[in-house]
Design a protein around this nucleic acid. Structure first.
Lengths: 148, 148
DNA sequence: CTATTTTGTATGAAAAGGAATATATTTTTG
DNA sequence: CAAAAATATATTCCTTTTCATACAAAATAG
């Protein structure tokens, strides 16, 4: 097989690295009884409860209508709670329920452990370099409101 | 907003970097009249015509049934062609049509230009480092047959 | 060889995602 | 302030993906 273009193409390498590494963790998520979308929302909320739908969508790399639907499912499952914003009645703020919190805590610990495993192959310096490179890519390439 | 866990979490940084940078290019793809899935298949095939469905699925980071359907659509659109493998009649090999080739060539040029733009912020050394880091991640984290 | 297992692709029903747009509320403008 | 524009979320309709599984062909084991 040729592999001339694709295997040296930055966008492919990024997509593939993300995909491979994430796939490993998503296997583990099943153990915690969480779907990928649920995990992403709960992990985001664990950084700051009470985000709006729009903030969550941006954080979880989803479009707003998609997030509305994810939240509806998660609210039905009792993982999160919708609460109207007091000062702006257009906004809906999302909070983790006790049940959601219990479900995500183990997953968070597992996520940290998994990250350690992935980074175990690298020196702390290399790991820090890798992360700052990725952050630079993100910063330089726009806080695009999910054009894709 | 807290952003304590997520913004330092490797898997998130990878997903976000990939998502942001890809989103830029996917905007350009529209100009070429190609959907993202079509682009990925055609770009893969441009590296080696005649891959099987399974190889294409792995290459394009998709599941096999998804790829079967993508190929069906693309064959209907006249972009690719299914041909049975001579020596193994389970296999189906996929080839670009003249039409598909014409459609992907400009997109390939554009992809290379876009990559240059993204990498313009980096020295050649840094760019090479970034790519080899990503390749290392891919290599060490499994040729998992799309568990996810 | 034949039976069993494995591999490669396809299919069908259900779930999820996407684009466009509706609705409600707030902000801005003149 | 009233009208217009902007913002936040929800909804509708349609396409795509996923999961499970079927089906066919090849490889392997007795």
């Amino acid at each position: 097989m040729a592999e001339r273009f694709v295997n040296d193409y930055l966008l492919y390498l990024l997509a593939r690295a993300s995909s491979e590494v994430s796939a490993q963790f998503h296997q583990r998520l099943k153990t915690h009884g969480l779907q990928v979308a649920e995990w992403r929302v709960l992990a985001s909320l664990s950084d700051g409860d009470g985000m709006t739908i729009g903030e969550l969508a941006a954080r979880a790399l989803q479009r707003q209508p998609t997030m509305t639907k994810i939240i509806t499912r998660m609210a039905d499952a009792g993982l999160v709670e919708r609460r109207p914003d007091a000062s702006d009645r257009r906004k809906v703020r999302i909070f983790i329920t006790g049940d959601g919190r219990r479900r995500v805590d183990d997953a968070l610990a597992d996520a940290k452990a998994h990250e350690q495993e992935v980074l175990a192959d690298y020196s702390p310096t290399e790991a820090a370099q890798m992360k700052s490179m990725l952050r630079a890519l993100v910063d330089r390439n726009g806080a695009s409101p999910r054009e894709d």
